[in-house]
Design a protein around this nucleic acid. Structure first.
Lengths: 339, 339
DNA sequence: TTGTAGGCGTTATCAT
DNA sequence: ATGATAACGCCTACAA
């Protein structure tokens, strides 16, 4: 029953050569006779040999694997960024292991630990919503494993980072609302403890200031869950309380969708009574009706760049300890919800 | 610079005991003195010890990792099913490695090979669109690694499978269209070489037959890409050719969205002139306007069940060689696009 | 309960 | 160009 798995040792014995030679032949070392190499390859095929990556990695101290941790793969932004990461990794001969933290600090810790213990060559991480301390990350870095933070980053850790230009993106789209003649512009934010949310808040405020509008704290809504239902509820509550913005900038498209749903229930006309702007340019934003004005986030490119950077760090001859801080510009896409 | 990594050997030396004892203490073996165990644990913490999973897996021949291969993580059906898999795996102390085949046969082969060479304890696989031969899968099974097929399966391989009840699901939703008085019902399918597509075609035909409608081959549209743009184009072409169904059942929600877009361009009223039904119950289907009638696929449950099954197989004392064939019922959700 | 020692399958350093 | 042989870090009979 138990199938005998062939190893390089078996090949060596059958060919009556040393395992060292087999090992070299198998991964195209230069100094090896052409014929022995071919003989080994042939025998390997014949004996149905498959390398044991565990053994190889243990010995070589390289896994050629990148670990990725995102809050969820169930949002296009994240799944697209993963595709970008995979694309770059693939080009460089690396594989990618994907994990979801589900916005849980505990899970993030566990995942990062597992990844490190699995000796991945590098970790690409987008912080969970709950993450407020960073010892678990610093500890990984101290263990000598390169970590790159993307999208959900923090200032406390000194390492390479790739982020969206959130501040200017938010500023641009809010400016667009102002241009449309809106005077009471709200911001529907995720947890402001998240750097991304804060940065977009800053951009929002900046746009208001430059547009000569004053900042009304009552128009800054903070919800703690990235779901359309939470957004919908927030708007219904707002209306109950008699607050009436004439435009709203939402942290993410999924939230904007919730706002849209609320408007349908309330009979509020979009964009006349309430203009809605999102962020991300998910498929959803395009197909919903009215279609959603939003900032397109180049998520694939972000992932690609992130992987490029960490691979560069991994393969740097000297640990240069020079980290990059890259910013990616989002792009305004005007649709019906603000026109 | 190169930080010395602590191993059990180091701990053993510091405590002046054998590495065997340390090893046992570290993973709670029963027969070990309480105090030595505590001493080891304490020292491990003190020396910042982290187990090397490569070494332990190599030695124990178990990785406690499940490999998952899906066409893409960028569709809710797939990302949700992965969440289901993770959920079950997590409960059983397993981790999950996720890979995307991008509907490419070549990539599928590579991924499956890598997974096997990484000695994962089991593989959960949804076949790529291009996959027509299955030697690469049989070969993995022959190597002794459990493989479970889900959603995208084939009959050629004898192993556990988890699928949607596609035939009855399709039948039910098409029957619903017939109930609504529709007489010329089209089916917009993905590549019919895919089992899923074929099964839904069968259900579609069965519903027509039972509804007393005849089957018109011109109303069965086959496209080779699961994108809204491909679907949109198909409908525009159909209209150009003067074919006018009064209802259309789409293989997936994303295709139904494309049909909806086409209708908007053509000025076709939905559902009066053309009723539209999808499959999957993506977020999209709910938020689009008119909202989409569809079959809700319990993707999370499917993933969960798939993982449960393969874990059972992995942990079976005797390789029983008894495989399961589970079917999950989708549920009709009626919305505006057919009302 | 603890120790000894032989793997697990590769890679890598010296020799030759 | 090839061969011995010692790691790599951990597990696990078998002994004690």
């Amino acid at each position: 029953m138990s199938k005998k798995v062939t190893t390089i040792k078996d090949i060596a014995e059958r060919l009556d050569i040393s395992i060292a030679t087999v090992s070299r032949a198998l991964r195209g070392s230069t100094d090896i006779k052409r014929e022995t190499k071919l003989a080994v390859m042939k025998m390997a095929k014949e004996m149905d040999y498959h390398p044991n990556l565990l053994a190889s990695s243990l010995s070589s101290k390289k896994t050629k694997i990148l670990g990725v941790v995102v809050p969820t793969i169930n949002r296009q932004f994240w799944s697209n960024s993963i595709s970008g990461i995979e694309n770059s990794a693939y080009e460089h001969g690396y594989k990618v292991m994907i994990f979801q933290s589900a916005e849980s600090f505990q899970k993030e810790i566990e995942i990062v630990e597992t990844l490190a213990n699995s000796r991945v060559d590098g970790i690409l991480l987008a912080l969970s919503q709950e993450t407020k301390t960073y010892d678990h990350i610093q500890s990984i870095i101290d263990r000598g494993i390169p970590v790159l933070l993307f999208e959900r980053v923090c200032t406390e850790i000194n390492t390479s980072k790739v982020i969206t230009d959130d501040r200017n993106g938010a500023k641009e789209i809010v400016a667009h609302l102002i241009n449309k003649g809106k005077k009471k512009i709200a911001y529907l934010s995720g947890p402001i403890s998240l750097g991304v949310c804060e940065d977009r808040l800053a951009g929002y405020k900046e746009a208001l200031r430059e547009g000569g509008l004053n900042i009304d704290p009552n128009l800054v809504l903070e919800i703690d869950e990235f779901s359309y239902s939470a957004a919908e509820k927030a708007i219904l509550t707002l209306w109950e309380n008699g607050v009436r913005p004439d435009a709203i900038f939402c942290f993410a498209d999924i939230l904007a969708i919730g706002v849209l749903q609320a408007c349908k229930k309330l009979g509020v006309n979009v964009p006349k009574e309430l203009a809605i702007a999102g962020f991300g340019n998910d498929d959803l934003s395009k197909f919903v009706s009215p279609s959603l004005t939003t900032m397109a986030q180049p998520s694939f490119e972000m992932g690609h760049m992130a992987a490029d950077l960490i691979l560069e760090e991994i393969n740097a001859e000297e640990r240069t300890l020079k980290f990059y801080n890259k910013t990616i510009k989002p792009q305004l896409i005007i649709r019906e919800s603000t026109e």
